[in-house]
Nucleic acid binder design. Structure first.
Ligand SMILES: [Mn+2]
Ligand SMILES: [Mn+2]
Length: 294
DNA sequence: GCCTGGT
DNA sequence: ACCAGGCAACGCTGA
DNA sequence: TCAGCG
């Protein structure tokens, strides 16, 4: 055993203790904690935009992706003075407001960041995220399914941005004006889900029981509740290949890219080239559509 | 990874 | 001083 | 009422 290393770095004026920088967090990719923290810093302008002012859930892997993991919602005690929290339903959530918080959590081996779909203190969703969950561990039709949903959205007059979840699935994000409710999103989600399931009954399912889904892709329109979370855009995932939840061009969906194409070791270059694809789409007229639904 | 409580 | 345990559990759905 | 789900 090499002696454990411990040191302090200063991030945005805050002192943060870093332990075991050479510990392998993604052994198959050779990603140590040191490399992870560097990649988090590169991701931070993008990731933080979709985490700030929300209730944060992290998933931690103190011994790397192949070790035991646990969810953490409650802020640990003691908490660094610079970390803000917010209470929601009896849980004292961490707020991921800046790079200092991100690096602090990275040192704690928080490998995944799952923010709420609403801002702290609000009951309203920030965006509509259509969640497609494959039943199989590898789903070659996931981009085909994504394209189908995208076409339906287009026919409804809605622009959207697909993103890999970083695991096996995809989310399709429709920016919305504030004022749309979670009830409204479930309603329009159910509507779109019924439509694609009817048109492609072998590809999509709305079946809630796993054992009845076969190998179809679950159209999960029930994610839209206050307090529920989804993998943030640009969050790393605790998967063997260190995949990152990555917003895509629709053209890339047509070209059938794989979720494993986008990972911690190549995401920086992509972001420099493409910027934040999500930011480029303005709020869409979702409320009018919901209002017209039966 | 790190803190706490029990031994 | 050392070690084991904890770190999310809960609301909603469909039957 | 409750197992199953995310
Ligand atoms: Mn999903
Ligand atoms: Mn889901």
């Amino acid at each position: 055993m090499p002696a454990a290393i411990k040191g302090t770095i200063t991030v945005d004026g805050q002192e943060i203790t870093i332990t075991n920088p050479e510990k392998l967090l993604w052994p198959d990719c050779g990603i140590t904690k040191r490399i992870y923290l560097e990649k988090l810093a590169a991701l931070s302008p993008y990731l933080l935009r979709y985490c700030r002012d929300r209730l944060l859930t992290v998933i931690r892997y103190p011994h790397g992706v192949s070790g035991m993991s646990f969810y953490q919602k409650n802020a640990p005690d003691p908490l660094p003075a610079f970390v803000q929290t917010a209470v929601h339903e009896n849980i004292n959530y961490i707020k991921l407001q800046g790079l200092a918080e991100l690096i602090w959590l990275g040192n704690l081996a928080a490998l995944e960041f799952h923010p709420s779909l609403h801002y702290v203190g609000s009951d309203l969703p920030c965006e509509w995220m259509i969640d497609l969950d494959p039943s199989r561990e590898v789903e070659p039709r996931i981009m085909e399914a994504t394209a189908i949903v995208g076409t339906v959205l287009t026919s409804l007059g809605l622009s959207s941005v697909p993103k890999t979840s970083g695991a096996t699935g995809v989310q399709i994000i429709v920016p919305i004006e504030t004022g749309v409710t979670f009830d409204g999103l479930r309603k329009i989600g159910h509507f779109v889900g019924r439509y694609v399931t009817e048109k492609h009954p072998n590809l999509f399912t709305l079946e809630r029981l796993k054992k009845n889904r076969g190998d179809k892709i679950y159209f999960d329109y029930l994610q839209h509740y206050s307090g529920k979370t989804l993998a943030a855009p640009y969050t790393p995932r605790a998967r063997p290949l260190a995949t990152v939840s990555t917003p895509l061009l629709w053209e890339e969906v047509r070209q059938n890219v794989s979720p494993t194409d986008f990972h911690l070791l190549n995401i920086e270059e992509r972001l420099q080239r493409m910027g934040d694809l999500l930011e480029k789409v303005p709020p869409q007229p979702v409320q009018q559509l919901i209002a017209k639904l039966p």
